[in-house]
Amino acid sequence: MHLARLLAATCLGTLLSACQMLPGGSGRLEPQRHAWEHLKPGCQGETCPLVNIDTISFADEPQLNALINERLLRMTQDAPGSPLPASLESYEKDFLASAEPGWSSYLQAKVLEQHDNLVLVELSSYLFTGGAHGMPGRGFINYDRKLEKPLSLGDMLLPGQEEAFWKVAEQAHLRWLATNKLDQDPDFIKTWPFERTANVGLGYGAMLLKYDVYSIAPYSSGHPEIRIPYPQLNGILKPQYFPGRG
């Protein structure tokens, strides 16, 4: 169990840290990090339940701070429609109070990229409550500093272009299959067909599509990421969201 926890923490930290690229001009936001890890009170040993939280906030960006906090809290929901915890601290308290030996919960938020008045935040979670492995989660926040709001896919696209966007995404999925040498495996293609995802990010080098485990690939593949080069989105993506035009 100690090894599983180490792998979970390493996976989350590496994936979020290794991709922290901040191209673009001046005026970047400087995130403040808030990180802690607590064990179940009174417990000692490697199987003690734990909660590890590693999040960020920004000076003078209350809307973005509240959004990050809310999205992390949503990642703690273990069933659709279940009530949100009042705070990360109350979630930690309730989780540890009922946790069994070996259980663990990790929550992270980190800036992935900043460019063109956009802040791309990646959210990450990992919950282990027994079984062969834990359940990881991922999500993006595309925050437009000029509009002071998070962007939905509809906000990013020109009117009437959503179906065209997903056709381009399907082509990117075919390239992903070929890159990973899966395009010649009919069983894989039948078992794991292309799906749409809510996790779309306005990266600097490409538009990013992040998938949950068990969506377009088995658990062992982690969170697949499909990249769409921006030239393929001409006439689909709003001009101001092409890097360098914002």
Rank of each mutant, 00 (worst) to 15 (best):
F165L: 10
M156R: 02
L151R: 01
L123E: 05
A86D: 11
L177M: 06
N180E: 12
E113Y: 08
A164Y: 01
K93M: 03
H115D: 14
D94Y: 04
V200M: 00
L120K: 04
L73H: 03
S87N: 08
K149T: 14
L147S: 11
L118M: 09
M135P: 00
Q108K: 13
G139S: 15
L123F: 10
W166S: 07
F165H: 01
D78M: 09
V119D: 13
L107F: 04
S125K: 15
V200N: 05
N180H: 15
K110P: 03
K93H: 10
Y91L: 03
V200Y: 07
N117G: 14
N142T: 01
S105W: 00
P193L: 11
L153N: 04
K190I: 04
T129D: 08
M156A: 01
L96G: 00
P85F: 00
K149C: 05
L127I: 07
L96S: 01
N180S: 07
A109T: 00
W176Y: 11
Y126L: 13
K146C: 09
P101K: 13
L123R: 02
V121N: 01
Y106S: 00
V111F: 01
Y106H: 15
L153A: 06
L151A: 09
L84V: 06
P80K: 08
S105N: 07
K110E: 14
T76V: 07
D155P: 10
R138A: 15
T76C: 02
S87A: 08
V119C: 15
L73G: 03
S90H: 05
L177Y: 03
N199Q: 13
W192S: 11
P186G: 00
K190W: 05
N180L: 14
L127Q: 11
T197F: 07
L127S: 12
Y91D: 00
G130K: 03
V200A: 09
E122V: 12
S125G: 14
W176V: 06
T179P: 00
I189S: 09
T129P: 06
L127R: 15
R145S: 05
R138Y: 11
L158M: 13
V200D: 10
Q184M: 07
Y204G: 04
D185K: 01
K167L: 15
L112S: 09
T191D: 06
P193W: 12
K190E: 10
E162R: 15
G131W: 03
D185N: 12
L112T: 10
L84D: 07
D78V: 08
D187W: 10
A79E: 13
R145F: 05
V168G: 03
F128M: 03
G131S: 02
V168C: 06
S98G: 08
Y126R: 12
K93N: 00
L177V: 04
G131Y: 02
G130H: 06
E92M: 03
A99N: 01
M156F: 13
E113V: 04
P136I: 04
G160R: 08
L174F: 14
S82C: 09
F188G: 02
E195D: 13
A169T: 01
